[in-house]
Design a protein around this nucleic acid. Structure first.
Length: 933
RNA sequence: GCCGGAGUGGCGGAAUUGGUAGACGCGCCAGACUUAGGAUCUGGUUGGGAAACUAGUGCAGGUUCGAGUCCUGUCUCCGGCACCA
C-alpha cells in the first residue's frame, strides 16, 4: 500500500487497484454471494412454515424500471437505495418487510430496437433484464428475488389479461361502483336468475321494466347495445394521432408540432376503432379518495387538476327554423344573458345539419382543415382564433334572442357537449374570438363595488374608461363597476340579466340553474377534463387482448384460454397501414371458422397497473394474488396498502392514476381489500450532471453507476447518493463528493483493521474487549437515536453526517471498544451493508462473543439509552440585548435563578451592560440568558 | 398566463416549539508523517477588520427580549400545466 506505487503523474486508471483504501472489490461480491446463497432477504408469506404472524408488515416499493439497453443510470439507485435502507432498517426493527423488484418490459423502445437490429424483442428484453438484474445485485439491494416479476412473462401477463376481462365484464352501477356485467345482463332478460341481488338497484329495475315492455323485434339489438356500452372496457372510434411511419397511434404527449416525438414523422388525425377504459366513471372517487393518502400535496393537486372537475350547468338552445336543440356546458350559467353567439366544435354532429347553403363550402373547408390538425397544433395556434359562421341561429332561452352559430376549433369535441354559448364580455377566449370576427359583446357582470370606506378605485382613467353602473337602466342604485373595453372574468354582480339583476355570481348561478331545471331547459352538471383511457396500440410487443370478433361483435375468450400468447412472428414490423402487426400472423388471427382475434395490443401502462399486487404472491398460478397474501401485505387499516412507494415525479399523473383506477375496480369486485394501492408516496429528485445540467448522452455528462462501483465500491455509491442532499430534491452529481464518503468508509474500516507492510489487512490491535468510555458511549447512543429517527423521516443525509461525527469520536480513541464498534456497524449496515457485514465478520474472528453471529441484517436494531445522552454540564449562551457576549458551562440541574446569577457575574456581560440595570432577563434553561438593558 | 417548489459560505447542504446561523461533506489554506503525495492524520476556513468588534440566510418592511424560522409586500430561479367553456 505504501510502497511500489506507480509514478504519480500519468498513472493509468487501472492502477487504482493498488490505491484502494479498503478492499471493497473483494468483500462486496463475496457478501452479495453470501446473501444470495442464504436467501438472506427471502420474505415468507402467510402460510409459509417460517412466517411469523406476530410481526407487523412493511411493504416498501420502488417504481420498477423499464430495462433499457443502456443499463442503469445513477438516478435509479437513488430511490432504490432509499427504500433499501428503510427496508433493512424495518427488518432489523422487527417488521416483516416486503421489498421486491421487477421489470416493466413491454413497450415501444424494445420493439423499435428489435426492428433496427433484427432481433426479436423477447431476446433483447431478456438480455436487458439480465443486465439490469446484475447491476442491481452489484449494489447489494435486499430484494427478495423469488418475487421478481416481469410484465412480459406469460405467467404474469396471463393475469394482466385476466384483469382486462374483469374490466370488460363489469359496469358501473348508480352508486359509482364496479359490478359484474352479469347483473345487467340478468336485468335485461325475461327470466332474471339473480333478481334478489339487484332488486334494490333502481337503475337495473328500470332497465328490466323497460326491457320487458319493449317489442321483441328491436329489443335484442338494444340489449346488446346497452350492455356493450356499459362495459368498463369498450370500443370507440374517436379520432386519434396516427403516425403512418411508426405504424401506431400516439398519445398526445408523444406528438410535438404535428410530428412524432420519436423520429419527427408526420402525424395525422383519423378516427380509428379502438379499445377504451371507462376511467371517467371513477373521476369523482379518484379525486375524493386522495384525501386519505400520505402523498405530497403537489402530486395530489396535480391529479385533481388533471381530472379537472368543474361544476356548471347544461343549457339547451333551440335552433331557429330547425327542429334541433344544442346542449352546451357552462360553468357560468349566470352569464346566460350575455351570450351573443354560439360555437360548435368542428366535429360536432349538428354542424352538417345546421349549415346553410351559402355557408356550406366555407364550413366544409374549415372542418376538413381542423380535422387534419392534431390536438397539439390546435393548441399551438391558440392565440390566433379561427372559425366559420354556419349561417344558422340559436335562440337564447332566457330572452328569445337569436344568436349566430359558429363553428371553431377552439371548442373541443371531447369536453362537455362539444358546444358552447359564447359570452365574450366574461370569457377571454370568447372575447378574442368576438373581437376578431366583430361579434357583439354584452357585459352582464359588474365588478363589485368595494365595501366603503375605501380609497381604492378600480376605474382606469382616460376617455374610454369604464364607469359605475346600475343593475339595469331603470334602477338608480350603483351595484358595481363595468368597463366595456375589458373582458371581466371574475365574479361580481349580475346586471342586464332580467330576473338575475343585482345578484352576486354564486346566487345568480343557483337561481338560473333552478329556473332552467323548472322549465326543462337544462340542469346543474359536473364535468371532468379527464377522458376515457385509450387502451389499444398497434404494436407487437404488448399484451394481446383476450377478445375475439364475430359478425362485427366482440366477446371475451374464456379464462381457461389465458394466457393468450402473442404469435411468434419473424416479421413484426409495422404494416404501414393502421392494421396492427399481429394481422400478419394469419394462423393466430383465426380463432374459429367464423371468429378472429382482436389485433391490437395493450399499452405499456397495463403491466404496471397492478405489479405491486403480484409481488405479494408472485409465484401463484391459481390466482393473480393469493387472498391471504393480499390481505396481509396490502392490509393494515389504512386506505392504501403499500406502506411506502418511491419513484420519480414523471409518473405523477398517468401511472398513478391508472393504477388507482384498476385498484378501485378490483376493490369493488372484492378482489383486493383496500380502496387505494399506495398509502405513502415519495418522489425522489432528479440527479443532474456535474455541470448542473440534466444528464444526457449529448451533453456527455452521464455518470455510469458501474464506473462508480468499480472505482469506489457499491457502499460508497449508496452512501453518496443518500448524502447528496434531501431525497426529494434536485441535486447535481459530484465525483469529489463520492470520494468524501469513500474516505469516511475507509476511516470506518480502519477502526477495525490495520495493514502491514505487505499491504495485508488484519484485525487491529487497538480493537479490544473493553467497555466504552463515557464520551464514546454518548456519541454512539446519539448516533443510534438520530439515525433511527432520520431513517423514518427519510433524512438520510443527516443520518450519515451523524455517523461521520461518531466515527471521528471513535478515531480519537487509543483503544477501540469492540462491542461499541459492533453496535455502530449495526447502525451503518442499512446504508453500507457490505462493509458492515465484513467488519463484523472480522471482529468475530477475534471476539466471537462480541460480534453479531451471522448477518447484521438479521440483527436487532440497537436501542439507545437516554441516560447515556445526558451530560453533567451544558453550555449556556449569555446575550445582552439579543447579542451574544459570553458563554459558560453550567450544571445541567442549575435553576433559572442560578443561571441568571452566573450570567450577571460574567465580566463580559457586565462590560456590555455598561452599569445599567437590567429591564428584563429571559432565561431559557440549558440554552441561553438574554439580558435587556 | 395558471399552478406548485425553492432562494443560507467558493460548492452540495445542516439548523426541535422562534433561542449560539453555516452541522456534515467537497474545495481551499497551514502543519505532521514522508525520497515523494493525488495516501493518511491534525488544525483552520461566511464577508470586512491587526484586533476589539461589526455586517450577514434573495430584496424592503413588520411582530418579538430574540427571526433563516412568524406576518405583509416584492424580485429571481426551477418544475409542471396550458383554448377543458
Amino acid at each position: 500500500m505504501t510502497s511500489d506505487r506507480p509514478s504519480p503523474s500519468f498513472a493509468p486508471p487501472m492502477s487504482s487497484e493498488q490505491r484502494k483504501a479498503f478492499p471493497f472489490s473483494e468483500f462486496e461480491p463475496k457478501w452479495q454471494d453470501v446473501w444470495e446463497a442464504r436467501k438472506a432477504f427471502r420474505t415468507p408469506n402467510p402460510g409459509d412454515a417460517d412466517f411469523d404472524a406476530t410481526k407487523p408488515k412493511f411493504f416498501v416499493l420502488d417504481m420498477f424500471p423499464y430495462p433499457s439497453g443502456a443499463g442503469l443510470h445513477v438516478g435509479h439507485p437513488e430511490g432504490y437505495t432509499a427504500t433499501d435502507i428503510i427496508g433493512r432498517f424495518k427488518k432489523m426493527s422487527g417488521f416483516n418487510v416486503l421489498h421486491p423488484m421487477g421489470w416493466d418490459a413491454f413497450g415501444l423502445p424494445a420493439e423499435q430496437y428489435a426492428i433496427k437490429t433484427g432481433q426479436h424483442p423477447r431476446a433483447t428484453t431478456e438480455k436487458n433484464i439480465e443486465g439490469f438484474r446484475g447491476q442491481l445485485k452489484r449494489l447489494g439491494f435486499a430484494y427478495d428475488w423469488d418475487r421478481e416479476v416481469n410484465t412480459t412473462d406469460p405467467g404474469y401477463f396471463k393475469w394482466t389479461q385476466w384483469i382486462f376481462l374483469k374490466l370488460y365484464n363489469s359496469y358501473v352501477n348508480d352508486e359509482g361502483k364496479a359490478r359484474p356485467i352479469a347483473e345487467l345482463e340478468d336485468a335485461l332478460s325475461d327470466n332474471p336468475k339473480m333478481i334478489d341481488q339487484w332488486r334494490s338497484n333502481g337503475t337495473l329495475m328500470a332497465y328490466h321494466d323497460c326491457y320487458k315492455n319493449s317489442t321483441s323485434g328491436v329489443r335484442d339489438d338494444t340489449r346488446a347495445q346497452i350492455i356493450s356500452e356499459a362495459r368498463l372496457a369498450f370500443v370507440s372510434s374517436a379520432p386519434v394521432n396516427w403516425c403512418p411511419e411508426l405504424g401506431t397511434v400516439l398519445a398526445n404527449e408523444e406528438v410535438v408540432d404535428g410530428k412524432s416525438e420519436v423520429g419527427g414523422f408526420p402525424v395525422e388525425r383519423r378516427p380509428m376503432r379502438q379499445w377504451m377504459l371507462r376511467i371517467t366513471s371513477f373521476a369523482q372517487r379518484l379525486i375524493d379518495e386522495l384525501d386519505g393518502l400520505d402523498w405530497p400535496e403537489s402530486i395530489k393537486l396535480h391529479q385533481r387538476n388533471w381530472i379537472g372537475r368543474s361544476e356548471g350547468a347544461e343549457v339547451k338552445f333551440k335552433v331557429a327554423g330547425v327542429d334541433e336543440t344544442i346542449a352546451v356546458f357552462t360553468t357560468r350559467p349566470d352569464t346566460l344573458f350575455g351570450a351573443t353567439y354560439m360555437v360548435l366544435a368542428p366535429e360536432h354532429r349538428l354542424v352538417d345539419v345546421l349549415v346553410t347553403e351559402e355557408q356550406a363550402t366555407a364550413v366544409e373547408e374549415y372542418r376538413e382543415k381542423a380535422g387534419r390538425k392534431s390536438d397539439m397544433e390546435r393548441t399551438e395556434l391558440a392565440k390566433d382564433k379561427s372559425g366559420v359562421f354556419t349561417g344558422a341561429y340559436a335562440i337564447n332561452p332566457v330572452n328569445n334572442e337569436q344568436i349566430p352559430i359558429w363553428t371553431a376549433d377552439y371548442v373541443l369535441m371531447g369536453y362537455g357537449t362539444g358546444a358552447i354559448m359564447a359570452v365574450p364580455a366574461h370569457d377571454e377566449r370568447d372575447w378574442e374570438f368576438a373581437i376578431k370576427f366583430d361579434l357583439p359583446i354584452k357585459h352582464v357582470v359588474a365588478q363589485p363595488k368595494p365595501s366603503a370606506p375605501c380609497l381604492w378605485d378600480p376605474r382606469p382613467q382616460g376617455p374610454k374608461a369604464g364607469r359605475w353602473v346600475f343593475a339595469d337602466d331603470t334602477k338608480s342604485e350603483i351595484i358595481g363597476y363595468s368597463d366595456p373595453n375589458v373582458c371581466y372574468i371574475g365574479e361580481g354582480i349580475a346586471r342586464k340579466s332580467g330576473f338575475l339583476d343585482g345578484l352576486p355570481t354564486l346566487e345568480a348561478k343557483r337561481k338560473i340553474a333552478a329556473w332552467l331545471e323548472e322549465k326543462g331547459l337544462g340542469k346543474g352538471t359536473i364535468n371532468f377534463k379527464l377522458r376515457d383511457w385509450l387502451f389499444s396500440r398497434q404494436r407487437y410487443w404488448g399484451e394481446p387482448f383476450p377478445i375475439v370478433w364475430e359478425d362485427g361483435n366482440h366477446r371475451s375468450i374464456p379464462e381457461s384460454e389465458l394466457p393468450l400468447l402473442p404469435p411468434t412472428l419473424e416479421d413484426f414490423k409495422p404494416t404501414g397501414t393502421p392494421e396492427p402487426p399481429l394481422s400478419k400472423a394469419t394462423d393466430w388471427v383465426r380463432y374459429s371458422a367464423t371468429a378472429t382475434r382482436e389485433l391490437n395490443t395493450m399499452p405499456q401502462w397495463a403491466g404496471s397497473c397492478w405489479y405491486y399486487l403480484r409481488y405479494c404472491d408472485a409465484q401463484n398460478s391459481e390466482r393473480f394474488v393469493g387472498e391471504e397474501a393480499e390481505k396481509y401485505w396490502m392490509g393494515g387499516g389504512k386506505p392504501g396498502g403499500v406502506d411506502l412507494y418511491v419513484g420519480g415525479t414523471e409518473h405523477a399523473v398517468l401511472h398513478l392514476l391508472y393504477a388507482r383506477f384498476w385498484h378501485k375496480v378490483l376493490f369493488d369486485l372484492g378482489y383486493v381489500s383496500t380502496p387505494e394501492p399506495f398509502q405513502r408516496l415519495v418522489n425522489q429528485g432528479l440527479i443532474m450532471g456535474e455541470d448542473g445540467q440534466k444528464m444526457s448522452k449529448s451533453r456527455g455528462n452521464v455518470v455510469n453507476p458501474d464506473d462508480v462501483v468499480q472505482e469506489y465500491g457499491a457502499d460508497s455509491l449508496r452512501l453518496y447518493e443518500m448524502f447528496m442532499g434531501p431525497l426529494e430534491q434536485v441535486k447535481p452529481w459530484s465525483m469529489k463528493g463520492v470520494e468524501g464518503v469513500y474516505r469516511f468508509l475507509a476511516r470506518v474500516w480502519r477502526l477495525v483493521m490495520e495493514v502491514d507492510e505487505e499491504g495485508v489487512w488484519s484485525v487491529s490491535a487497538k480493537l479490544q474487549d473493553v467497555p466504552a468510555n463515557k464520551q464514546v458511549t454518548k456519541a454512539l447512543h446519539e448516533t443510534i437515536k438520530k439515525c433511527g429517527e432520520d431513517i423514518e423521516k427519510l433524512s438520510f443525509n443527516t443520518a450519515i453526517s451523524q455517523m461521520m461525527i461518531c466515527t471521528k469520536t471513535f478515531t480519537a480513541e487509543e483503544v477501540m471498544p469492540a462491542s461499541a464498534i459492533v453496535t455502530f456497524l449495526k447502525v451503518l449496515s442499512p446504508f453500507a451493508p457490505h462493509i458492515a457485514d465484513d467488519l463484523n465478520a472480522h471482529i468475530a474472528t477475534k471476539f466471537p462473543a462480541l460480534a453479531v453471529d451471522g448477518l447484521l441484517s438479521d440483527a436487532t436494531w440497537p436501542k439507545y439509552d437516554p441516560a447515556a445522552l445526558i451530560e453533567d454540564e451544558v453550555e449556556v449562551v449569555f446575550q445582552v440585548n439579543g447579542k451574544l457576549r459570553d458563554k459558560a458551562r453550567v450544571p445541567i440541574q442549575a435553576t433559572k435563578d442560578e443561571i441568571e446569577k452566573i450570567a450577571l457575574a460574567s465580566a463580559r456581560v457586565q462590560e456590555f451592560m455598561e452599569g445599567k440595570t437590567p429591564k428584563k432577563i429571559i432565561v431559557v434553561p440549558g440554552k441561553l440568558v438574554n439580558i435587556v438593558v
